[in-house]
Write a protein that binds this DNA or RNA. Structure first.
Lengths: 349, 349
DNA sequence: TTTTTTTACGAAAACGATTGCGGCAAAGAG
DNA sequence: CTCTTTGCCGCAATCGTTTTCGTAAAAAAA
C-alpha cells in the first residue's frame, strides 16, 4: 500500500512550469510574477499540496523533530512533563519522538544513539537511575547535537538544564514532618547517582540538622532502580521497620516510591499517620484520594516540560553557537494532606 | 551548530570507490567482491557510519515511524498503551510520534493531518470524545495510510481494531454491584458518541435487566468531555445526588471519571461503600491505595498497545493490500476492592 | 586464439525540495 | 536604433541513499 502524495513536480506539470518556479512561487519569492504565484498557490491549496517534510529535511539538514528520553511514561511526573513538551513543540511545528529508558543505562545509551542517528534536531533527557557515566551524551553533544537536561541532570554536559528546587522541596517536606512532631524520619530515595537524589537528600539532612537532629544513615534507603522494581522498595521498607528504633515517619523521594510505600504500609496494617507519617514527592493527580490522602511535594512538571522545550528549540534555532547556559530551578509546592497530620489535626475527612 | 555525519560519499572517497559500490557493499550485495565488502564494512564500523535515515526515507518512500493519537498521555490507561506501542515499535526499529487530542475534535483532525503530512508510515488512534465524524481518517485511509484503531473505535474505517471487552467488563462490574446488594446503580460515562460508551452502557443495562431491574435513564449521566473537564463530572454527580431516589452505587466508565467521582464523594463526606458503592473502569496503578481502595475494571492496556502496533506494522509491511481485517477483543479483569463491598464483607484493611 | 560468460565495479537517474546562476524577453536609457 | 537594465523563469546541482544499467576485465567455454 503506497500513499502517493502531490509533489511539486505534479504541480509543475499541471501548470506547465518548471519545478523551480513552483518551488519559488510557493515560498513567495520575488523573482516570480504575481500571476504565476497566484496560479501556483491556488492550485496547491486546491489540491491540498503539502511539502514532503522528508525531502525538506534532507535538503535543509534539519528534521524538525526532537527526541525525548524519560525513564517511564507511565508515571504522572513524566507524563505531565511530556504534556508540556508536546504543547510547545506542537506550536513550533516540531515532532516529538518519545522513548523510555526504563531506568536502564543500556537502553538510555541505545535510545540516545538511535535518536541522534534518526537525526532529531535536539534531545531532551532525564537520566536513568542506572546511569553513572554520561559519555554517550557528551559525545553527541560535542558532535553538535543540542541537548537539554531536566529533572535528573548532570553538569558533565555543558548545556541548559531545568530542575525543580529539590533541595528546598525536600527541606520543606522534612521540616513539615518535624513540625508535626515526628522525630525519627526515614528517607527512601532513588539511586545515589542521580542529581535529584543528592539534592533531596541534602534538603532532608539540612532540615533535620536545623531541628537539632543528627541524620542517621540507617534511616536512609537507596533504591537503585528508582522504584521500578517493587521488591527493592519493599525491602528498603522492611529494613526500616526492622530497626530497633523504628522510624515514626517516612519521606519518599519519588512518585513510584511514594505509592509503593503507601501501599506496603497499608498491607502491613500500619496506620498512617498514627504509626508512621508519610510525605512523598509525587505528581499523582490522585494523591488526594489515597488512603490516607498523601502529603505531597509536587513538581511543576508541565512547566518544566514547556521550559525545557523552549530552551531546546532556542538552541536548535540559534544562528551562532550558544555559550551561555541557563540552569532554571522551578519551585515545588508542598500540599499537606492527611498522611502527615498527627491525630487531632485532621484537615479533611 | 551543525552536526556533520559521515556519509557514503566520504567512505567512497576514502576507499577510492564509487558511492554505488559502497552502498552495495554495506547492504551485502552479491555483486561486490568479498575483499571490497570487508574493507567497506571495516571502514564503516571503525568510523561509526550510520546511514542517514532521512535520505533512506526519501528514497524508499517510508519513514519508519508511526504516529499515535490519544486523548491524553497523563492517564494511566493511555500511558500504558503507549508503553506497549513503544516496546514493539522499538523492536521493529520504528519511531513513535505521540500526539494528544485532549479530547478535542479539532486537535484530532489537525494532528492526524499533521502526522500524515509528516509521512508517518501508519497511524494508531483512539478517537476523541468530541469526535462524531471520522471523515478526516477515512480520507487518509483511502489515500493508503494504514490505520489501526484501539479502544475508542468506529466501523466507518475498514481496518484492524483492538478493544477491550467493554460489554462484558461493564456487565461484570454491574453484576458485582448487584450481588453486593446494591439496587439503584447509576452510571457515569463519557460521550455517547464513543464506542466504549455504548458498549459499556449496554453491558450495564443488560446486567440490570438480567437481575430483573429496569434501567432508568435518570441514573445514566454522559460527560461529553470524557472527564477532561472536572466541572462536567461534578455536575453529573450532583444531579445524581439530587434525585429523589438517590443511587446507592455508581459505576464509572473511565479512569478520569472514576477518580473524580471518588474524590468528589469524599469531599462531600459521603461514605463509600456504605452510602454509595463504587466501581470504575481504571488502569490506575494506585487503585489499591485509594480511599477506599477502588474496585476496578482493568483493561489490558499494555497488551492492547502491543497488539495494535503489531497489527499496524503488519499492515505497513504487507506486500499486497490487506483486505481481511481483524477485530481483536481483549478481556478485562475485575479487581474487587473495598469501594464496592458493603460493610461486614471487608476483604482487606 | 576467439567467443561467451561471469565477476566486480562505476555512471547516472531517481526520491522531493531548494537555490544559485544563466538566459531570454520586454522595458528603459542613451 | 543600439545598449543596458529589469522581470520572470528554467537549468542544473545539491542533500544522502538506492538501484538499474552499462562495461571493463577476468574467467570459462569454444
Amino acid at each position: 500500500m503506497k500513499f502517493e502524495a502531490l509533489t511539486i513536480k505534479d504541480i509543475a506539470k499541471a501548470l506547465n512550469l518548471s519545478v523551480s518556479t513552483v518551488s519559488k512561487a510557493l515560498r513567495g519569492s520575488h523573482e516570480i510574477s504575481g500571476d504565476t504565484k497566484k496560479a501556483v498557490m491556488a492550485y496547491a491549496s486546491e489540491h491540498n499540496y503539502k511539502p514532503n517534510p522528508i525531502a525538506q529535511s534532507l535538503k535543509r539538514g534539519r528534521s524538525k523533530s526532537i527526541g525525548v528520553i524519560v525513564c517511564n511514561i507511565d508515571n504522572n511526573f513524566f507524563s505531565q512533563v511530556i504534556n508540556g513538551i508536546e504543547s510547545i513543540a506542537q506550536n513550533k511545528d516540531y515532532n516529538v519522538i518519545i522513548t523510555q529508558s526504563q531506568e536502564s543505562y543500556e537502553r538510555e545509551v541505545s535510545n540516545s544513539e538511535h535518536l541522534s542517528s534518526r537525526s532529531v534536531d535536539g534531545l531532551i533527557i532525564s537520566l536513568s537511575a542506572e546511569t553513572r557515566n554520561v559519555d554517550h551524551l557528551v559525545k553527541l553533544h560535542q558532535k553538535g547535537l543540542p541537548i537539554v537536561l531536566f529533572d535528573r541532570v548532570t553538569d558533565e554536559i555543558h548545556t541548559h538544564t531545568v530542575i525543580a528546587n529539590n533541595y528546598k522541596g525536600a527541606y520543606e517536606a522534612t521540616q513539615h514532618l518535624l513540625q508535626q512532631g515526628f522525630r525519627r524520619i526515614a528517607h527512601i530515595t532513588s539511586s545515589g547517582s542521580l542529581s535529584i537524589t543528592l539534592e533531596r537528600l541534602a534538603g532532608y539532612r539540612k532540615a533535620l540538622e536545623d531541628a537539632g537532629l543528627k541524620p542517621d544513615d540507617r534511616y536512609i534507603k537507596f533504591c537503585q532502580h528508582g522504584g521500578m522494581i517493587q521488591e527493592e522498595t519493599c525491602q528498603a521498607l522492611e529494613e526500616l521497620l526492622q530497626l530497633p528504633d523504628k522510624p515514626d515517619a517516612i519521606f519518599t523521594a519519588s512518585d513510584r516510591l511514594s505509592t509503593t510505600t503507601l501501599s506496603q504500609l497499608s498491607k502491613r496494617k500500619i496506620r498512617i499517620p498514627q504509626q508512621i507519617g508519610l510525605v512523598g514527592f509525587t505528581n499523582s493527580i490522585s494523591a488526594d484520594i489515597f488512603n490516607p490522602s498523601l502529603t505531597a511535594v509536587v513538581q511543576p512538571a508541565l512547566e518544566m516540560g514547556k521550559l525545557a522545550t523552549e530552551m531546546l528549540i532556542q538552541l536548535i534555532e540559534s544562528k551562532r553557537p550558544v555559550t551561555v547556559f541557563e540552569k532554571r530551578i522551578l519551585e515545588t509546592e508542598l500540599t499537606i494532606r492527611d498522611s502527615s497530620i498527627k491525630d487531632g489535626n485532621h484537615t479533611n475527612g
